[in-house]
């Protein structure tokens, strides 16, 4: 990866982090409603994997989706406006935090029923293969989703039909407050793919460059041979959502993981590169902060959706 791309990714990670930190403020102020699930700590996974995709590759994820949206190229304005429920949001204020999408960027959501988007990924990959397209579908999900029937139905069918799907398990150790070993008979999640004869690997999800490399290799396999499961070992620094009592883990554990901050790790790597000075990094950080503030202003000034908008969206309409 060249230096320019590395700086672009650094900026992307910082943008996601700042956007989410400010989202948490807005949530506490009551400007964002519903549930808010932050990606803080996991940024290297989404940024690393998506930086390995080509434009024709589809991306679909679960409800912890702001970071994935940004990585797919969504503007912070569209994310922030959706969080504030505005008509200018990516989903026109109808979806909220958990339901962001931009199909023109090949980002297919933002799905909040745990496991339910895995069959959707299977179907999208089927359509692409059926048409002879060389697109792959990248499907992110948490390790908690690997205990639900959908995971097994979707992985099995993707393997039977040899579909171009990269299954990316973001193992952040906890399904809400339930630790892996309390909910899954297998704690090395990637082994579940073995049950379907599906090749798999795991990667340190805090190291963006390692994630990027692993995703690139996995996508090569997907395009040539069919499904692959990549497990990224990661950790969320914040609660499951904003209303998390955090009774299930020790603060020592969180502190240890925070020492492994994926942004800090990548920053250190960049500082070691000749030609990337502290000033360059600070400039990217400042730019991200300004973008977030501009996005908040845009969102706050945007109009709310109307009842007419909603009524017109119930059905897409008849085809002639």
């Amino acid at each position: 990866m060249d230096q320019k791309e590395k700086l672009r990714l650094y900026h992307e990670m910082v943008l996601i982090r700042r956007l989410e930190e400010r989202s948490a403020d807005l949530y506490r102020e009551g400007k964002i409603g519903g549930f808010l699930h932050l990606y803080i700590g996991q940024e290297a996974v989404g940024c690393g994997v998506i930086s390995a995709r080509r434009p024709q590759d589809r991306v679909i994820t679960a409800y912890r989706d702001h970071g994935i949206a940004i990585s797919c190229g969504m503007q912070p304005e569209a994310v922030m406006a959706e969080l504030l429920g505005k008509d200018t949001g990516c989903s026109r204020g109808m979806g909220g935090s958990m339901h962001m999408a931009d199909v023109d960027l090949n980002f297919w959501g933002g799905h909040a029923i745990v496991g339910a988007h895995l069959p959707l990924a299977t179907g999208m990959a089927w359509a692409d293969k059926h048409r002879g397209s060389d697109a792959a579908t990248i499907c992110f999900f948490g390790e908690g989703a690997t205990n639900i029937g959908y995971f097994h139905e979707a992985l099995n069918l993707s393997m039977v039909w040899k579909l171009p799907v990269l299954w990316v398990c973001e193992n952040n150790e906890y399904a809400m407050g339930t630790a892996v070993e309390r909910a899954s008979a297998v704690d090395e999640i990637r082994r579940k793919a073995d049950g379907y004869g599906m090749p798999n690997a795991s990667v340190d999800g805090m190291q963006i460059l390692e994630v990027h490399r692993a995703a690139k290799q996995a996508l090569d396999h997907v395009r040539k041979h069919g499904p692959f499961l990549l497990e990224a070992i990661t950790y969320r620094f914040m609660g499951h959502s904003m209303g998390d009592p955090e009774r299930y883990r020790e603060s020592d554990e969180i502190r240890k993981w925070r020492e492994n901050d994926p942004i800090g790790i990548f920053r250190k790597h960049l500082q070691g590169i000749k030609g990337v000075g502290e000033k360059t990094l600070e400039r990217e950080e400042t730019r991200a902060e300004e973008q977030v503030e501009a996005a908040i202003r845009f969102a706050e000034e945007s109009p709310d959706p109307t009842l007419d908008n909603l009524m017109s969206l119930i059905y897409a309409g008849e085809e002639s």
């Binding site: 589809r58 297919w108 339910a116 895995l118 069959p119 959707l120 990924a121 299977t122 179907g123 999208m124 990959a125 089927w126 359509a127 692409d128 059926h130 048409r131 029937g149 959908y150 139905e153 979707a154 099995n156 069918l157 039977v160 039909w161």
Partner: peptide, 22 residues
Amino acid sequence: RDTPIAEGVIVGAANGAAMAGL
């Protein structure tokens, strides 16, 4: 397409394929 006996992914894959233009 014959499928496994797995209604969740039958309708789910149909939904996904429909989203992708089939």
